[in-house]
């Protein structure tokens, strides 16, 4: 099956004023595609967590999405500090976010675990000093 939809968003690190904008736009796109509401919710929650990680930790990043062969693939790739210990970062409640980020309602250490929770397939790859790439796949059928 050919790709039904695809697109991307560019995210700027530190841009809290637009936090969540890409994810809410993705929700509109997926809703207009007529996808199942529960699957859309899982997809955009995972995307929002990733979007926030880029804004909080990275210099910049991109979010790409595509629907192909009954699967929704979302890839979040950033240029940033990378993650030293992915296993630790996947622990619920573990966070390296500074206090000012927590005061804005983020950085509770639930981002990566929540992305995994909402994905059917979750992959993460990170190189310290270069950046992090997360792939999320949600089965649509």
């Amino acid at each position: 099956m050919d790709t039904l939809i695809e697109g991307s968003f560019h995210i700027v690190g530190g841009d809290f004023s637009n936090a969540g904008k890409a994810s809410t736009e993705l929700k509109t796109i997926l809703t207009n595609c007529g996808l199942d509401i529960a699957k859309i919710r899982r997809a955009v929650i995972a995307t929002f967590e990733g979007e926030m990680n880029i804004i909080i930790y990275a210099v910049a990043g991109t979010i790409t999405y595509e629907i192909q062969n009954g699967k929704l693939l979302i890839t979040l790739q950033d240029i940033g500090p990378g993650i030293k210990n992915i296993e630790l970062a996947m622990t619920e409640g573990y966070s390296t976010a500074p206090d000012w980020v927590r005061e804005m309602g983020w950085g509770a250490g639930m981002g990566l675990p929540n992305m995994k929770k909402n994905a059917d397939i979750f992959k993460i790859n990170s190189i310290v000093g270069e950046g992090t790439t997360v792939e999320i796949i949600i089965n649509l059928y």
Binding site: A19, S23, T47, F48, M104, G105, W106, N114, K117
Partner: peptide, 25 residues
């Protein structure tokens, strides 16, 4: 994002745009 269900109402002191976007998502 982690705990809520779509049937919940949100009670919060954080009155910012990101609250609206979180609720939307």
């Amino acid at each position: 994002l982690f705990y809520s269900t779509c049937q919940s109402l949100l009670l919060t002191g954080l009155a910012k745009t990101q609250t609206i976007r979180t609720a939307t998502v």
